[in-house]
């Protein structure tokens, strides 16, 4: 218990990361079909541990689709079919023997619109640890909840009203609550699907700060519409266009000196 609360990733990561690989998530030849529609075409990418990776690209380019493949959220769509291979620490995500529930505990997700459960703030954060059986006692659960809220930078604001409904918070607070909820199950990877698109600039800045803080402990993948945001928060950036991964590399490199014409066009505002 101590291990997980004090430093959730050090022990975990040590156990899971294959020595020498250096990458947390790897995708090879990943294709997604929605019925007849080929939504994602042969995407291969490696995502390093403890850094922020940004997915950018115009609407409908497949970046969210790919993100949802990593924790198999696409399973909930009946007509969706995924081929290829995605691994986390070398373990195939789409392996039949893998329990998708365990996978999602290892890969947290934050959604576009803040979606706290219409329950108390405490219950929002405690839900994940509860269903995974992380806490053997109420005190332990309290500790997990507090630590998670603390890490999400929300503790100070909600300390005195943990029993209030999660939906009573402001938009930015709700989104940080969702981040706290994701952190509470000690994931290794956090997926963020345009986490700031529904927020005002101040709340956005707060979330971006948070992402930067979280980077030291988690591997974060963020889908964003805002190139500035990608530039601000990420170390690496991947550009998607029409279902293909066009280019991937150091953020600085992508934004200043892209290899591909399409990336160049997008960054300069010609595709959008």
């Amino acid at each position: 218990m101590d291990a997980i609360v004090a430093n959730p990733s050090s022990a975990t990561a040590a156990a899971h990361v294959m020595p020498g690989s250096g990458f947390k998530v790897s995708a090879r030849d990943c294709n997604v079909y929605y019925g007849e529609k080929h939504a994602l075409k042969s995407v291969s990418v490696d995502i390093p541990d403890r850094s922020v990776m940004a997915f950018i690209g115009p609407s409908g380019c497949g970046k969210s689709t790919f993100l949802r493949c990593i924790n198999r959220m696409n399973d909930t769509i009946p007509i969706c079919r995924v081929t290829g291979k995605i691994t986390i620490d070398g373990q195939d995500v789409y392996d039949q023997s893998l329990d998708v529930v365990q996978l999602r505990a290892r890969v947290g997700m934050v959604f576009q619109k803040p979606n706290p459960f219409p329950k108390s703030i405490y219950d929002n954060v405690a839900y994940g640890p509860r269903i995974h059986g992380f806490a053997q006692s109420r005190a332990e659960l309290d500790q997990i909840v507090m630590t998670s809220l603390e890490k999400a930078g929300l503790l100070k604001e909600v300390k005195d009203r943990l029993t209030d409904s999660g939906t009573s918070l402001s938009g930015g607070q709700q989104q940080r609550l969702c981040i706290a909820r994701a952190i509470a199950v000690s994931p290794e990877v956090i997926l963020m699907d345009e986490p700031c698109s529904a927020l005002d600039p101040i709340a956005t800045a707060r979330i971006e700060e948070l992402i930067d803080e979280l980077r030291s402990n988690y591997s974060i993948i963020i889908v964003t519409h805002s190139m500035q945001q990608a530039a601000r928060v990420s170390q690496r950036t991947a550009f998607f266009h029409l279902g293909t991964l066009v280019e991937e590399g150091e953020t600085g490199h992508i934004f200043t000196n892209p290899n591909d014409k399409r990336t160049q066009d997008y960054i300069t505002g010609r595709i959008g």
């Binding site: 218990m1 101590d2 291990a3 997980i4 022990a11 975990t12 040590a14 156990a15 329990d99 365990q102 505990a105 269903i131 995974h132 059986g133 992380f134 000690s186």
Partner: peptide, 14 residues
């Protein structure tokens, strides 16, 4: 304590 890293040692809740 100390064994916590095998986080999913129990697959399902009791």
């Amino acid at each position: 304590p100390g064994m916590r890293d095998v986080r999913y040692s129990l697959h399902s809740l009791p």
